[in-house]
Amino acid sequence: MSLPSVDADESREPSLDLTAPVAPADLSVVICAYTDDRWDDLVAAVQSVLDQSRPVGQLLVVIDHNDGLLARARDRWPALAVLASTGRPGLSGARDTGVAAATGSVVAFLDDDATAAADWSQRTADAYARGPVIGVGGHVEPRWPADRPSWFPPEFDWVVGCSYRGLPQTAAPIRNAIGANMSLRRSVLDAVGGFAGSVGRVGASTAGGEETELYIRARAAFPHGEVLLEPAAQVLHRVTPQRATWRYFVRRCYGEGRSKVEVGRLSSHDAALASERAYVTRTLPAALLRGLVSRDPRRGAAVVIGLGVTVAGYLRARLSQ
């Protein structure tokens, strides 16, 4: 896919109305799935959208190159648009397939193992009324397999695809939304060319960053617009037992470091690391102090290890590049 440069010239900013009001009926919701192992999660995710207190305009289920799952989903939801991904294998290609079929003025993305609160559609739509808005992200709450692991720092909940300590607690501008609960105006997606297929998750890999790269590109193309975090637009994201482990924690941190290099290659390394600098200098020192006085001394160690492994992944990828 050929993507526009992020070095935007404001004089050439596309002329789009980023203040147009949005209603829940204007939302096209895209849920992408790739494995039968998360079938029950997918059913719950779809049902949570169907059960919204204010109905969305369109719900699209995109199956990422799994013919058996595609047939099963079409049999389960004959009245819904269940699509086979027409892109390359991976989340970016599946999301682009959903965008191409979306008819709403806003395209919202929900993970197949996340369930939306009953007022999610209304809260998301309302956030678009807060000035010139490119896209909106919401709060992603982890649903642990049992109790939260005592060693797992809340500042690292991004490891399991959830909102982490350090994010704004009230509506505020951010660089990018978390992929499990994000949305953008359809006109913006059309203008910037969709997701970059060279970055992001394929299957069960620990790579990421496709939403970060897209939002960076969108903000560069529309410098007068904002990406907003609306914590009141909430989803619950299931954490599998395999992800609540030290092994996954380390793998995901390393994968995130490597992903930042690819995001930086497509946009700029300054943009790719802008939020991370504040995170490292403000959020993590406080996390380390909390970890040191925690009842579980492993929490402090997790902060140090998580940061070190992420940096190692980043440096290794930079050297390879």
Rank of each mutant, 00 (worst) to 15 (best):
R201Y: 05
P132Y: 11
T124H: 05
E141S: 15
G194W: 01
G135I: 02
G194V: 02
I134A: 04
E213K: 01
F222G: 01
I216Y: 01
S198H: 06
L229T: 11
W151N: 12
W151C: 12
P154R: 12
R219D: 07
I174L: 08
Q122G: 10
R130G: 09
A118N: 11
R238M: 11
E155H: 12
A244P: 01
E155T: 15
A171N: 06
R217S: 02
R251H: 14
I178M: 05
L236Y: 15
S198K: 02
A146F: 10
F156V: 07
Q122C: 05
R143E: 15
Q122N: 05
G138L: 08
G138P: 02
G197L: 08
L189R: 00
G209R: 00
R143I: 15
N181L: 03
A116H: 09
R143T: 15
W120F: 13
Y254L: 12
D157K: 06
G179Q: 02
E141K: 11
D157H: 13
G208A: 07
R258N: 05
P223Q: 07
F152M: 08
S205C: 00
S121C: 10
A116F: 07
A196C: 08
G194P: 01
A118G: 11
C162D: 09
A127P: 02
A117H: 12
R123N: 11
R185H: 03
A232G: 13
A172N: 11
A207V: 06
R143Y: 14
F195P: 00
P149D: 15
A172E: 14
L214Y: 03
V133L: 06
G225W: 04
T206Q: 03
G255N: 07
G161D: 05
Y248P: 02
Q122Y: 10
G137A: 09
H224K: 05
G208I: 08
E213H: 04
A220Q: 04
S163H: 06
S198P: 00
G257P: 00
G225S: 06
W144Q: 04
V235Q: 08
S187P: 00
G161I: 04
V192M: 01
D119L: 14
T206I: 08
C253R: 01
V192T: 04
F222N: 00
G179N: 05
W158K: 02
V188D: 01
R252A: 08
W158Q: 09
I178T: 10
P149I: 12
R238A: 13
R247T: 15
A129D: 13
W120C: 06
P168A: 08
E213D: 07
V188H: 00
R217P: 01
E230I: 03
R217H: 02
C253G: 03
G197A: 10
V140N: 03
M182Y: 12
G257I: 09
S198Q: 04
G197T: 06
G208V: 09
G257S: 04
V235C: 07
C162H: 05
Q234M: 15
Q169P: 13
R130S: 14
P132T: 13
D119Q: 12
F156M: 09
D126V: 10
A191I: 03
P154S: 13
T206D: 06
R130W: 12
R247P: 06
T124P: 03
R252V: 11
W151L: 12
F222T: 02
R243N: 12
I174N: 11
T245S: 11
R243D: 10
S187L: 11
E211A: 04
C253S: 08
D147S: 13
R247N: 15
